[in-house]
């Protein structure tokens, strides 16, 4: 039986004046203090009776310069921690250079939730069903993290350690994420299956990214990230490098995705169904990407 409470449990709201103060406070109270940004996941979990030891909620979203999206033609895209999902969806630079990211962000929950939900929050929350994790991973995102020792870079590869578990340590605050420039000609697609047409959590989510690559026999390289079929996103890199790129080859790559994942049964779907859907949606996503690569247009 879920023990959801009518309201939020007791805690003290803390708004530090600086990152240093925030990191110090979080490190000094590793069990009892939690950082939060949009709070869309934090408040729900607190109300549901998780994190009973929480005494302090540390608001880390209003620290300087963190609500910006910047694009640099040499270094790529940087998204600040306080940038909400709607801003990611609507940002012209994101749409021009990383449309896959905008597409994935758009599939998160509802508009009014996306006003509060942040990209960084979605990553730090580390839900296996997170819609944006795949795109961020495939774009090679690198988190900028402020800890008690100061700033460091934290690549997303290796960041996710389990449902709700990441490489962040007490005192760590992710302040932004940077995405290197995508390989020229990259095309991405996010294929999500929920119970409803929109707004649901993913039963299965498949993120596909492909790009031209003169070093492969096929002239291309494809990558997949699978959501909701393991404790952390399942990544398949360097697919479809062999020639020729036929429908059968795409089918076979989709079949590899099916073999690579080990989903569980839960209230949203059975493992058996999820395996089928990983294959079918991977096929669909790879086909969409392939169509985009052939037409020379980025597709969403």
């Amino acid at each position: 039986m879920r023990e959801a409470h009518p309201g939020l449990p007791d805690f003290d709201y803390v708004r530090p004046a600086s990152l240093e103060e925030a990191s110090r406070f979080l490190a000094e109270n590793p069990q009892s203090a939690r950082p939060f940004m949009g709070g869309t996941d934090t408040f729900v979990r607190l109300r549901d009776g998780f994190w009973k030891e929480t005494r302090y909620l540390v608001d880390v979203k209003n620290l300087d310069g963190r609500a910006e999206i910047t694009f640099d033609p040499r270094n790529g895209l940087t998204v600040g921690a306080a940038v909400n999902m709607n801003q990611v969806v609507a940002d012209p630079q994101v749409r021009a250079h990383y449309p896959l990211l905008a597409q994935a962000a758009h599939r998160v929950a509802s508009y009014q939730l996306r006003t509060r939900a942040t990209l960084i929050g979605n990553l730090c929350n580390a839900s296996p069903a997170g819609d944006t994790l795949g795109a961020c991973l495939l774009f090679g995102g690198i988190l900028r993290v402020h800890g008690v020792e100061g700033f460091r870079d934290q690549p997303l590869a290796g960041f996710f350690q389990g449902p709700g578990r990441t490489a962040l340590q007490p005192g760590d605050i992710a302040t932004s994420i940077r995405f290197p420039l995508p390989v020229p000609g990259s095309v991405g697609h996010y294929e999500k299956l929920g119970r409803n047409v929109l707004s649901d959590l993913a039963i299965v989510g498949v993120t596909a990214l492909g790009h031209p690559d003169s070093s492969t026999a096929s002239g291309h390289r494809f990558h997949l990230a699978l959501a909701s079929v393991g404790p952390v996103p399942v990544i398949l890199r360097d697919l479809l490098t062999q020639a020729p790129l036929t429908p059968e080859a795409l089918d076979e790559a989709a079949g590899r995705a099916m073999e690579a994942c080990h989903p569980i049964d839960d209230v949203r779907g059975s493992a058996r169904y999820r395996k089928f859907m990983v294959r079918n949606l991977s096929r669909r996503a790879l086909n969409r990407v392939w169509e985009g690569l052939q037409s020379g247009h980025c597709c969403e």
């Binding site: 709070g39 869309t40 408040f43 009014q112 939730l113």
Partner: peptide, 13 residues
């Protein structure tokens, strides 16, 4: 000026 779920915003914020 942006819509939010007011159940998921702290008053103090």
């Amino acid at each position: 000026d942006e819509p939010v779920n007011s159940c998921l915003v702290l008053a103090v914020e």
